[in-house]
Simulated scan of single mutants.
Amino acid sequence: MPTASSGADAVFLDKDGTVLENVPYNTDSTQMRFAPGAASALALLARTPLRLVVVSNQSGVALGRFAHSALRGVETRLTRMFAACGATLDAVYWCPHDERGHVAPYARACLCRKPQPGMLLRASREHGFDLERSWMVGDILDDVEAGNRAGCRALLIDCGHETEWQSAPARLPYAIVSDLHEAARMIVEHHAWEHGHRPDANTQVQP
């Protein structure tokens, strides 16, 4: 996979419920479909220098729902789906752990399972991402907390998947959006202003 340049800004994306329709424990590529707004969001983000990284809890490995090796096929399918939108999937990070599981060595607590920020911190170390100028987008508050704890700006897609709303500071999103496309529009506009130029007609966010 391509390696991000030093100091690059990244958009960290949760997989299920954010990029893809939320199908629990799914590793079947024929069942991997974009969530509403995701394809157009990736096409929009593809017109920027932002790096796209999927960070996903995959407790199904620890719980014995599928083998860790099955995630290679998921990554391959995601890469092709991004490419079909004109976007590059720069990196993928999985957390296969769950202390409720029974499959060794994955049945344990860890520092990478969201809301822990481990996957984002690892991505920053390996690719040189500037976390303070990067974003985390997900559909539950564990995603938001992971992004906040890593130092990113975190956006919550309010699509009904979060059921345990909490007002702890670490779980407060930078903003709440309706889908990934709305998140992408916000990110693109912020990125343009931060880098000293207005978005062009194709990327400008309308009220």
Rank of each mutant, 00 (worst) to 15 (best):
M1F: 12
M1C: 14
T3V: 15
S6M: 04
A8N: 12
A8Q: 11
A10F: 06
F12G: 13
D14L: 01
D14Y: 05
N22L: 04
V23D: 15
Y25L: 12
T27A: 09
D28M: 12
T30K: 15
A35G: 09
P36M: 04
G37E: 11
G37K: 05
L42D: 09
L44T: 12
L44H: 07
L45I: 10
R47K: 14
T48D: 04
L50S: 10
R51I: 03
V53N: 12
V54D: 14
N57H: 01
Q58D: 13
S59L: 02
V61K: 08
L63W: 04
R65E: 14
A67Q: 13
H68W: 03
S69E: 15
S69K: 07
S69F: 01
A70R: 09
L71I: 00
L71D: 11
V74I: 06
R80K: 09
M81I: 00
M81T: 02
F82W: 04
A83C: 03
A84N: 01
A84K: 04
C85G: 03
L89A: 11
L89R: 03
W94Q: 11
C95A: 06
D98Y: 01
D98E: 02
G101Y: 00
A104W: 06
A104N: 06
Y106A: 07
Y106E: 07
A109C: 11
C110D: 15
C110G: 14
C112G: 13
R113S: 13
K114M: 07
P115I: 02
P115N: 05
L120I: 14
L121R: 15
R125T: 03
F129A: 00
D130E: 11
D130R: 13
L131A: 12
E132I: 02
R133G: 11
W135A: 04
V137H: 08
V137G: 12
V137S: 06
G138F: 03
D139R: 00
I140G: 01
D143G: 10
A150I: 02
A150T: 04
G151T: 00
R153L: 11
R153H: 15
A154Y: 02
L155V: 02
L155Q: 05
I157R: 12
G160Q: 06
G160H: 09
H161S: 14
Q166Y: 05
P169R: 09
L172C: 13
L172Y: 01
P173R: 08
Y174V: 05
V177I: 00
D179R: 02
H181S: 09
E182R: 08
E182Y: 01
R185W: 00
R185C: 15
M186D: 08
I187L: 06
E189N: 12
H190R: 13
A192S: 15
P199Y: 01
P199A: 06
A201K: 01
P207D: 11
